[in-house]
Nucleic acid binder design. Structure first.
Lengths: 107, 107
DNA sequence: TGCGTATTTGGCTAAACTACCAAGTAGTAG
DNA sequence: CTACTACTTGGTAGTTTAGCCAAATACGCA
């Protein structure tokens, strides 16, 4: 793989990797409907340590998927790109397709 | 996070994780334009060991993203869902947006 | 200033991922 | 059967990731 092509796929992979975790998908989903959420709200939803959630948010921010804003002692996070939601439609169809194949194997 | 919601995001994450690697993105990209490719062709493009490429293909297949067909001594892989390509458009806009933000920081 | 809340960061461990080499399987041709 | 090619799988070492606790930082309020 030549260097330039490699760089292209590495850049893409970094972003996709940031999405490749259940907790981070929940965050994206939640931010897409709620608009914005503070770390404490997300922590309660996810149900793990706040430090863990904060790290997940840092990963999403590092990939440029969310942005944060500090207001008072709280930090609010927002989705930076709405198009991420288009992922989920495709993911769902893959899952539906997989389920169908499973069915056929059993039948 | 309640069990059901967790299961939903875990299922999604499994599929996204399968895409979260440069070599696997190259494979998806290549299959989307070429239609199908054998392991040896992909191995040459990626430039790593064939065993490594075979494992990458197994990951994609495990997620239901590609399907394989053996013809003679070769195994051909195809994309199972075209919609995956819609990912890339969004990824590109995230990257463009990130690049713009970088610019602004420098200016 | 000192206290309490919200968040991030350091340190650590366990688990997952990646890539290579070597060995095994399967098909083809002589 | 033998040899060769295409591919997969076992074994293993190095790297990355995830989660927790504890400590540090930042802010608001008395």
């Amino acid at each position: 793989m030549d260097t330039k092509r490699l760089a292209k796929y590495e850049a893409r992979a970094r972003i996709i990797k940031a999405l490749a975790h259940p907790a981070r998908l929940l965050i994206v989903d939640e931010l897409s409907t709620a608009g914005e959420r503070c770390v404490c709200e997300l922590t309660e939803m996810i149900g793990s340590d706040m430090s863990t959630v904060s790290r997940h948010l840092a990963v999403l921010k590092g990939a440029g998927l969310v942005e944060d804003e500090k207001r008072g002692q709280m930090v609010f996070y927002r989705l930076r790109m709405k198009c991420i939601l288009s992922f989920f439609d495709c993911i769902e169809s893959v899952m539906a397709c997989n389920a169908r194949s499973q069915q056929e194997l059993l039948a």
